[in-house]
Design a binder for these strands. Sequence first.
DNA 1: ATTCTGACTTGCT
DNA 2: AAGCAAGCCAGAA
Length: 136
Amino acid sequence: MDYVEAVLDLVALIPEGAVLAYGDVADLLGSGGARQVGSAMSRHGSAVPWWRVLKASGEAPPGHGREALALFLLEDTPLVGDYADYLRTGEGRWRVDMTAARWAPSAYEFDRIDAIAGGLDRSLPKLSAPDDEMTV
DNA sequence: ATTCTGACTTGCT
DNA sequence: AAGCAAGCCAGAA
């Protein structure tokens, strides 16, 4: 399984009305960084609930504000700011209320996340297994 | 090996 | 609250 698959699998678990920042996804996966997640989402996120993954500030991914907002309203995702104006004139500023909307995985969900993260490593062609020696 | 690029983050004005 | 500079991670050139 490659990084992109892991990201998509994880994103698919985020429930309605909840969100995760790019950095959160990377942390849960225990690998890569926010930029890797963003990159993966921009190229392969169309099949999963991509709007539930956004910047740490709560802003929707660049170029998708309009579409994301519509979905957030449908899902009753906690928002802050003036999205009414944004809808009407495109002028207002709004964001997701990260404090309230950030997903807090249940113990079960957390296990599933762990499973995804665990299936990540397997292909490291280089670096033959150093037996049981670790050289701390 | 080096440089560049990007749906990122944080800290400091 | 909004901009900006640096830091950060990996893949591609």
